[in-house]
């Protein structure tokens, strides 16, 4: 009966929402950005430590639903060691994945767990919010981003 829900709330997502990784203010952060969805109240601040063009470390704080928490947690894990160009390309593939359920090539093993989101149009904004915050942090923007 809850097949669609099991698709949405895959074990990896439940795990990351219950025990979010890198859930902290990063002491060495030299970039940060806030993602805020005023309609639902999800509020996530993303911290990055950039060494030249490479992400050395990432962390986040805030409050949100299981989807946005898990998305932020997985994002901070996979950003480590990647260049900003690589992250931008991953962002595009993540965007395709959560809106269509498909994307060109494998986005990264773990990100595939978000494929079920596209069946829940109201929840796409939850999954993509931390990514918008990440792009904003990389680009050094000051205003909070929103996916609403």
């Amino acid at each position: 009966m809850f097949d669609e829900l099991s698709d949405l709330y895959q074990q990896v997502i439940l795990d990351h929402s219950k025990s979010p990784r890198n859930f902290r203010v990063l002491p060495g952060a030299n970039r940060s950005a806030q993602g805020y969805n005023p309609l639902c109240g999800d509020n996530i601040t993303l911290y990055l430590e950039l060494d030249g063009d490479v992400v050395k470390s990432a962390g986040f704080q805030g409050s949100g639903c299981a989807i946005s928490k898990a998305s932020a947690s997985l994002l901070t894990e996979m950003m480590k060691g990647k260049t900003t160009g690589e992250i931008r390309s991953l962002f595009n593939r993540m965007h395709d994945l959560v809106t269509t359920g498909k994307c060109e090539g494998a986005p990264d093993g773990k990100l595939a767990v978000f494929a079920g989101v596209h069946k829940f149009p109201a929840r796409v904004k939850c999954a993509i919010l931390p990514w918008h915050a990440a792009m904003s942090a990389i680009e050094g923007k000051q205003d909070p981003v929103s996916t609403e």
């Binding site: 009966m1 669609e4 829900l5 639902c40 949100g64 829940f120």
Partner: peptide
């Protein structure tokens, strides 16, 4: 359990709730 996760769940059971502020 975040209200939005709860509301998505209930919706799959045909129950229309509101979640948010």
């Amino acid at each position: 359990v975040h209200a939005h996760d709860l509301v998505t769940f209930a919706d799959q059971k045909g129950i229309a709730l509101r979640g948010g502020h």
